[in-house]
Design a protein around this nucleic acid. Structure first.
Lengths: 110, 110
DNA sequence: CTGTATCCAGTAGGATACTG
DNA sequence: CAGTATCCTACTGGATACAG
């Protein structure tokens, strides 16, 4: 197998970043890492998000295979979101980034 | 010290992602990880980038303390870019992301 | 060689109102 | 409860021409 060059590494890395690029994706993933959550729970816990943005975030995470959506057609309706194995595996990357941020927050302030 | 909650972890993680959010930031960092490069070298090696976008990328990396810019007022002019210690330290994060992408590229294709 | 200036298009997300 | 529809703004980057 040939060595990956800079362009290939940058492309692979960018694909990961694109998975997390939306404003609320990371917050949603951290919440779901603690367990399954309903739409309204995410809506109230993730921050000052609009329903439109939250839905877009969830749909994009679902398309990318990080999150699963389950609908329970009760009255009132219930929709639950949870991490896929892939979604779960990416949380270790998130925690590495958080840890790096704590080691460099002096620089991030500037 | 108190445990960080999800919101704090998401905020720290997002600050790191914001550092890398621009389209060409990752490519530039990978190139500079191999050593100092001139503007024109980056321009030709990083991909199909416009000069405007490359300059914006470099300015933003410089503001965030990941890159240093050095000007040599010769004729013709020479400008060199290189990683700061902070910039260097973030490359290990980039490589973790690249590695993750290679382990999940089946999912990324979908 | 190393950028700036200008114009233009696509995308993300906030606010608000409405729906099955 | 869990969204969708509409309107609007900000940001990002490509193309092109021009400048120190």
């Amino acid at each position: 197998m040939t060595e990956p060059n800079d362009i290939e590494m940058a492309e692979g890395t960018r694909r990961v970043l694109d998975l997390l690029a939306r404003k609320w994706s990371v917050g949603v993933l951290y919440l779901l890492a603690r367990g399954t959550r309903r739409y309204s729970e995410l809506f109230y816990e993730v921050g000052e998000v609009s329903k439109k943005a939250l839905t877009q975030t969830l749909r994009s995470l679902e398309r990318d295979g990080l999150v699963v959506r389950r609908v329970y057609p009760e009255v009132p309706m219930r929709v639950e979101y949870s991490l896929t194995p892939t979604g779960w595996s990416i949380t270790s990357l998130l925690m590495s980034m958080y840890e790096w941020s704590t080691e460099h927050d002096d620089r991030l302030a500037a």
